[in-house]
Nucleic acid binder design. Structure first.
Length: 912
RNA sequence: GCCGACUUAGCUCAGUGGUAGAGCACUCGCUUCACACGCGAUAGGUCACAAGUUCAAGUCUUGUAGUCGGCACCA
């Protein structure tokens, strides 16, 4: 078979995905075992406006590894995919486009026309992220692809809203909310980011008492809000102000009189100890206002300009202009005491970075107490969700829930789920699933729907069950789009993979709504992956423009190499991106490609022979009982099974990086560097048995690697002679042949052969020591050497059985085995484990000076170790208290080192 | 202010109380018939610092320093 010299990822990536998808490999229906256990994962739905970034690539890889692994183990797997409508982002994007294309604003074209535009945009451009998900090779079920705005998911949203309202857990109220004056919508606490403002100032304003007898100085960072002040508060025990409590102040610039009140909220130490109170523009002030029955005077519009209530001179002015003007007026009046520089952190809109204005506003809220308690109970009693890594996420999650406040769910947007509440002419509200239902309740058709939409996270919170058909239309079930049993089969899902930034926004809310509406947890485990940083360890961000585009990396190094790099990072730990690391996995892919190439070049008449060949080799037993090649075979089979066991164990606990390391070393070091080299002569000589065995081992290795490197493994697997769908897991026996449906090797303990591993270690140690001598003595590659070995009988038998392989790899032409050494003075020497000794006669080639240094170096190394051992073993406490096994082990090592040191010293003396 | 994580080879990072590990980079050698995206052989460590627990600490405890993160407050 002709096969290219180097692996070309692009070619394999183009080949297989469409075929997998077309043959139904990604759907749970491919599994024909009626008793198969289910395994399900839902993707954190990326924004419809989004494009793939490294964070996606990381979490997607982890999910796909788990799904492919479980599928190969015979589970009925569902990896559910879909996208989120992303309210604000999408609305802003379409608004920009509308401006550009038609020079119009959403208001100009109206709500209906605008939402139509959004759908048009979604249909045209919304597929970008899903195309990229295909590129990543994700084995997601496209037949069940979901979108949060589609009808069935919207129905679930309305159902949840109505039920919560009926229970009194959703209410409408007037509160101080986080208002973004630029997006002109309210935001939840979680969509607000606190950021330091460098040029912050603290202004000290003087308010005179109404009788003109005294002044009270208040400190503020937002002087413009004084226009809405309705009191000044001091601490009840602050003696400085005791006389003033109850008196009234003449609020400058407004002509209003406001009282001085006492409230223990005030800290005497801060500022002047007197606080201006603006109940309509500050949440703490609002609470004080409530306690003292103060008027709540709104002085701003929704775009953060001052309104008429702010007074004639200020109305229509932007908040920051008004600030400057207030300060100027105070100064003119001689009421500005001072201005200090003051570093302050202020809430900013997470999206547009505008400074949030706390504003009194009527909004919809969800009361969280009951659902919060359900989630806390689940964690306390069952430790669910089980976070990986558990520290610190379990505690952070729990603490957050404990301090949870009501959730503001209305948004002043047009793109999203419109709130299912209708008002009659008198302002009475009717919450219902449909307008008809509302009309029935209201007794009139003349109703207006609430113009607001719901927070995008409201629908995301339902994702694990709304996507599986909860409350879906019966008709939809009949079309097969929603399978009526999906919820039963796949809920709860097994594991959620996501970033730590949305533990509160999303994970906690899925837990709460899942418990409330399905009556069961949405998932058992939550893997919180780390953040991919740039090469300098900085977070990637658009403003820094230091992002690394996964698609560029795919292009340069291949999807599989990228997946290995991502899966190879420790679970939950941040790591700095290094192209060098992907490069090493690109090289790894090429290594496997070439190992396969070698096996195929010499595969005349050979085939992959399933498990039978593995069993047979093992049954060969120790060297004297089997063929001369039995050791390498027993050894590689043992290594394969050990690796398979360890890989499964690692994946069970989500130690992806551990699995990656195991596979990398098994394939590169054990299989390529040793096994292939040991078997090369047999293979090239046309030994069909040997060729078949190497193909068989390779086939098993490809299966183990498949979840991580799906394209490469499929490409190579399809080239192997003798593969067929009979190698599939029984659940997929009739499907078209593909490695993704073969049985994942779990490792057979009975094929783990410790004796073979120990013997092999002797052989590799011998070869390595001889190679070391060759390198240190500058022996030319073509020059063959003779190796004299002194060893005990069983070790001699091991070396004898592998004589041909040792000669080949050590480039020797003869091996002389004996009980003791009898060699010329001009020999290079080394000691081996188990009191064996080797000597390589180098008549005319040896550099005595170098050899002495080499021996000296070995002695010194052993000396360092033996000194530590001596110290430990002469400690009576250690000998007494440490486990006997440990002590015996060290004693044996001590004896061995002493023997080796003696030998090396004798060798050294012989050179003098 | 509260909570937390991290600090290991030149770089990026693994590490489960018992001899300190990988990849890349570095040094030396090799056009050896799968692969130079390769092969072979080396070198490189006060595991941030200090104390404690233990026969034994990179690992457990406390403190210190530095780096980073989350939450809260901010008149």
């Amino acid at each position: 078979m002709e096969i290219a010299k180097a692996y070309d990822p692009t070619q394999a990536e183009e080949h297989h995905y469409a075929r997998w998808e077309a043959s139904g490999c990604f759907t749970p229906e491919i599994n024909q075992d009626e008793d198969a256990e289910a395994f399900s994962i839902v993707i954190p739905p990326p924004n419809v406006t989004g494009t793939l970034h490294m964070g996606h690539a990381l979490q997607h890889t982890l999910m796909d590894v788990l799904t492919r692994w479980k599928r190969m183990l015979g589970y009925r797997t569902l990896f559910l995919v879909g996208v989120d409508h992303a309210g604000i982002s999408t609305q802003l994007m379409v608004t920009r486009q509308l401006k550009k294309d038609e020079h119009k604003t959403p208001q100009e074209i109206g709500r209906e026309a605008f939402t139509e535009k959004v759908w048009e945009w979604k249909n045209k451009y919304g597929g970008e992220i899903t195309r990229q998900i295909r590129r990543e090779g994700l084995s997601v079920d496209w037949t069940r692809e979901r979108f949060t705005m589609e009808e069935n998911l919207s129905r679930a949203v309305r159902e949840v809203f109505v039920r919560l309202y009926e229970e009194g857990w959703i209410y409408r109220g007037t509160r101080i909310v986080n208002w973004c004056p630029r997006d002109k919508t309210v935001l939840s606490d979680l969509e607000v980011k606190e950021e330091k403002v460098k040029d912050g100032k603290l202004y000290y304003l003087k308010y005179p008492t109404s009788d003109g007898s005294a002044m009270v100085t208040v400190a503020t960072t937002r002087p413009e809000t004084m226009l809405g002040d309705t009191a000044v508060a001091v601490h009840p025990e602050d003696m400085r102000y005791a006389k003033l409590v109850g008196k009234s102040l003449a609020l400058p610039l407004t002509g209003r009189e406001i009282p001085v009140i006492a409230d223990s909220y005030v800290e005497t130490e801060f500022g002047t100890g007197a606080v201006k109170i603006t109940p309509a523009h500050d949440s703490n002030d609002w609470e004080i206002g409530e306690r003292h029955g103060l008027e709540k005077l709104v002085v701003m519009n929704d775009d953060a300009t001052m309104n008429a209530a702010a007074g004639e001179g200020f109305a229509g002015m932007d908040r920051f202009e008004a600030r400057a003007k207030v300060v100027e007026e105070f100064e003119k009046l001689g009421l500005l005491e001072k201005v200090e520089d003051y570093e302050i952190t202020l809430p900013h809109c997470e999206r547009c970075k505008t400074i949030i204005e706390p504003l009194l506003s009527e909004q919809w809220f969800v009361k969280m107490e009951e659902m919060r308690d359900m989630a806390l109970k689940l964690m306390r009693e069952d430790n669910i969700p089980h976070f990986f890594p558990e520290i610190p996420h379990k505690k952070v999650y729990t603490t957050w829930l404990e301090n949870l406040r009501d959730w503001t769910i209305s948004r002043q947007l047009w793109w999203g789920h419109q709130i299912p509440a209708w008002y009659d002419g008198d302002g009475n509200v009717f919450v219902a699933r449909t307008k008809e239902e509302a009309a029935e309740k209201a007794g009139t058709e003349s109703l207006t729907q609430d113009p607001d939409v719901l927070d995008t996270w409201f629908s995301s919170a339902l994702w694990p069950f709304s996507t599986l058909g909860w409350q879906s239309e019966p008709g939809a079930v009949a079309t097969g789009v929603f399978n009526s049993t999906d919820l039963e089969t796949f809920y709860p899902t097994n594991v959620l993979v996501t970033g730590r930034d949305i533990i509160f926004l999303w994970v906690s809310r899925m837990v709460m709504s899942g418990l409330k509406f399905v009556g069961e947890k949405p998932f058992d485990d939550v893997i919180i992956h780390g953040t991919v940083l740039d090469k300098n360890g900085q977070r990637m961000s658009k403003t820094k423009n230091n992002g690394i585009d996964p698609l560029g990396v795919f292009e340069k190094y291949g999807v599989d190499a990228t997946r290995m790099t991502l899966a190879g990072s420790a679970t939950g730990v941040d790591f700095a991106w290094r192209d060098e690391r992907v490069e090493s996995f690109r090289n790894f892919a090429n290594k496997i490609w070439n190992a396969t190439r070698f096996a195929l070049m010499n595969s005349e008449g050979a085939t992959v022979r399933s498990d039978s060949l593995l069993q047979q080799a093992s049954a060969g037993g120790p060297p004297e009982g089997g063929t001369p090649n039995a050791l390498a075979d027993r050894w590689i089979i043992s290594r394969l099974n050990k690796t398979a066991k360890a890989v499964n164990r690692a994946l069970e606990t989500y130690q992806f990086h551990e699995a990656v390391q195991l596979l990398y070393h098994f394939i590169w070091d054990d299989f390529c560097d040793w096994y292939i080299e040991l078997k090369k002569d047999e293979i090239t000589a046309g030994d069909v048995e040997a060729s078949s065995r190497i193909l068989t081992i390779l086939e098993q290795a490809l299966r183990l690697l498949h979840p991580f490197m799906p394209f490469l493994t499929e490409e190579l697997w399809q080239k192997l002679p003798g593969i067929s769908n009979s190698m599939h897991n029984a659940a997929y026996s009739s499907a078209d042949q593909t490695i993704m449906l073969t049985t994942f090797p779990t490792g057979d303990g009975s094929l783990i052969d410790e004796a073979a591993e120990t013997e092999m270690q002797s052989v590799t140690e011998l070869i390595t020591k001889v190679r070391n001598i060759r390198a240190e003595m500058n022996i030319k590659p073509g020059d063959k050497l003779g190796i004299h070995i002194a060893a005990d009988g069983s070790t001699q038998r091991v070396f004898a059985a592998s004589e041909e392989q040792i000669k080949k790899l050590a480039r020797a032409d003869k091996i002389i085995l004996a009980d003791s050494l009898d060699v010329p003075r001009a020999s290079a020497r080394a000691v081996l484990t188990g009191n064996a000794e080797i000597a390589v006669p180098l008549e005319g080639l040896i550099d005595f000076e170098k050899e002495r240094a080499r021996l000296q170096g070995q002695i010194e190394k052993l000396d360092v170790e033996v000194q530590r051992l001596n110290a430990q073993l002469s400690n009576a406490n250690f000998v007494e208290k440490a486990p006997k096994e440990k002590v015996d082990g060290l004693r044996e090592r001590q004896v061995e080192i002493e023997g080796q040191t003696r030998t090396l010293n004798q060798n050294l003396e012989a050179l003098n």
